[in-house]
Amino acid sequence: MRIIVCIKQVPDTTEVKINPETGTLVRDGVPSIINPFDENAIEAGLQLVEEHGGEVIVITMGPPQAEQALRDALAMGANRAILISDRAFAGADTLATSYVLAQAVERIGDFDLIFCGKQAFDGDTGQVGPGLAEHLGIPQITYAIDIEEVTDREIQVRRLLSDGFEVVRTRLPCLITAVKQLNEPRMPGLKSRMKAKKAEVEQWTCDCIGALADRCGLDGSPTSVMRVFSPTRQVEGERIEGETAEEKVCRLIDKLRDAQVL
């Protein structure tokens, strides 16, 4: 099987702090990681290849430093890594991003499955996976929680829905998006990491993948950000003090009663 996994490098938002004075993000020194759901996507690809043979190709569209995310994926066991990077891609929204990824996937060619994370931690849109499937004209199965069966022609997947599960079966090639519970991503050992450090990461540009410049980046993005602002919060909070937990709790209950909440 040839399995392509699309990943994104994101800031580790659990490390993001807010400057208490300005209320803005402190992003300096915040480490970059593979989007956590994409790790599940990589793991799913690796497991299928272990079972059925083949290769896992991991790709990302991003700035040059996104190469590190690809190396992390190589350390996990991916066979090949491609960085799709070009100034022309800057400012891409989800439509332009999915177009570029589709062009890259077509250049790779002859694939059976594409895995993506269900959404990225920073943007949280979940739109790129389905957009990519649409550009390629292949079916999609989003929110995969279990890959139940893979044959030469078909795949059966259990999807996680808000009110339960749905088991669907579709034709290959198809695109699948992974939720956290799909699997437990492996932690690469030191040896794999060292090896991945020296491994080749292919570099593809806009020209390489035959992408039309006016469909990439800002030009290819129907949406644009008009303004950004800090969310407003105004609460005059009250600290409940007390010597013991019991004392604090009693005071809290009184307060809640006064406020007619209880």
């Binding site: 929204d93 989800t94 439509l95 999915s98 943007g123 949280d124 849109t125 979940g126 739109q127 790129v128 996976g129 389905p130 957009g131 990519l132 499937a133 649409e134 550009h135 999609q140 989003t142 929110y143 999807r159 996680l160 829905l161 808000s162 993005s221 129907p222 949406t223």
Partner: peptide, 23 residues
Amino acid sequence: ATGMGRDLASRIAARISAGLTAD
């Protein structure tokens, strides 16, 4: 922006090259 809506909206938007804003 439900499981269905996110799955569907992204697909339609990509087909007709419409702008789509999530959530």
